[in-house]
Design a protein around this nucleic acid. Structure first.
Lengths: 252, 252
DNA sequence: CGGCTACTTCGTACACAGTACGACGTACAG
DNA sequence: CTGTACGTCGTACTGTGTACGAAGTAGCCG
């Protein structure tokens, strides 16, 4: 799939769901389920088996209910993903870092988001453009802006800086999550993969045609565990990111 | 969808395809197609209608051929995506920036990648972890390392810096591409969407509970075109990124 | 209390996906 | 000329999201 999309249906209905302000039904039989239960089951499924395992049929099966029953609670799958994401945002621990130096505050913020994606790898794959404007996201946004407040940034710069930081963490998480998915899917460790490909690669990658690529590529491969190391890339990137913001924040 | 994955099948077969070193078949009827034609048709389809429109059936239809015929040329869809990506990398113009200041060189590099994702929005959605090690990628990698060479970075730092930069550009492109997809899919402009949601949002987002979020959010919304502005985020991010690398490159 | 009506549940069905399998025909090696 | 390797493709399987309509339930109104 190209990235899973969100928010396909009626925006008002979705918003009402996010904020739990659905009008209670007046007629008909009692509802056997609650939206939060559906969201929890879908989240558990995604946590254990990945976003690809989340289908309406499988969620319904876990709930011992017919697939179509879910549609009385949720307009569609896209909205279900929105709800999962907002609920995850809501659960994010929000450490108070008031008074600490700004680098520490932003590092804590980045680490918290990284932890979120570590606990819920699927979250990095759900699109966050025009994100689910639910209580979870709003609380998260408010808390994160607090770490950027009082640093001499304009409102616009605060939003820009936060977007930049969150985008970096999400990209890192996506890379890590993709790497793990590839490993699982191909049932092949990085070492196995390189071993299988080494013979052909050595024929084709001669150091005359690609001098830098061969030199740097093998240096990077040797330093890390042969392929890409997400943890290392995260630490490197976060330092550059903070240095880059320093030029904005600590300006004379 | 979680991001489309790549490289599922036999690695050796995929590598041979990438480097065009398939052994010529000795028996049987002549082949009516060529891999490059399939790749071109699939790319054209993805360019015009998005990655979601690329199905084996639709590609085959464009080629006036049965879907299963494609499988004699390509092991599967994942490998087809790999080939599309490597071909796109190969077409990337590689401007010689030797002698120019490093900020200019890296900006040119980032802009070239951004242009790639602008021309081929689907490329940002195809996973690039354990990427297709074809001639296109290798030429790209070699060319991009050249822009980082001679700046006093270690081999590992060069790879780290490049990964950091490319990851930023890809994340920006993904955001832009997701935004456009959402707009198309919901058949709703940003203004329409905000207009539809404003009544409920104003009820729920009071400035007492979310003071910073409301203030900064509306400032950001007013400055940009009401929602997220990918172009603005790219320019902001690139400046921070270069400032961050400056702390590494221009160190005493 | 009877009936209307809104409501939940769910069986069936449709259009689409990737691709496994096997039948059929072709063209080269011997 | 024959055998065999190979390209082509019809059919089919599993799985997706979800539209539609039938069936049954529970509250409201007369």
């Amino acid at each position: 799939m190209a990235s899973d999309r969100t928010s396909a249906g009626d925006p008002a209905r979705t918003l009402a769901l996010l904020w739990g302000s659905g009008p209670a039904p007046r007629h008909g039989p009692g509802r056997g389920l609650r939206v939060e239960v559906i969201v929890d089951v879908a989240t558990a499924l995604a946590d254990r088996e990945g976003l690809g395992a989340v289908s309406m049929r499988r969620v319904a099966q876990r709930l011992r209910v017919s697939p179509m029953t879910l549609y009385t609670y949720v307009p569609g799958k896209a909205e279900l993903l929105d709800l999962m994401l907002d609920a995850a945002y809501r659960r994010l621990p929000k450490e108070d870092t008031t008074g600490r130096p700004w680098r520490e505050r932003l590092t804590a913020l980045a680490d918290a988001n990284r932890a979120l994606y570590l606990a819920h790898p699927w979250a990095s794959a759900v699109s966050t453009l025009r994100p689910p404007l639910g209580p979870g996201l709003m609380a998260k946004y408010e808390h994160e802006l607090a770490a950027l407040n009082g640093l001499g940034l304009s409102d616009l710069e605060m939003d820009d800086a936060l977007t930049y930081l969150l985008s970096f963490v999400q990209a890192s998480a996506r890379a890590a999550s993709d790497a793990r998915a590839t490993r699982v899917e191909s049932a092949m460790s990085d070492e196995q993969w390189w071993a299988a490909n080494a013979p052909l690669l050595s024929q084709v990658l001669d150091a005359d045609t690609y001098p830098l690529a061969v030199r740097v590529g093998s240096a990077a491969g040797a330093a890390q565990g042969s392929a890409h190391d997400p943890e290392h890339a995260y630490r490197f990137g976060l330092q550059r990111l903070l240095d880059g913001l320093a030029a904005l924040i600590d300006r004379p």
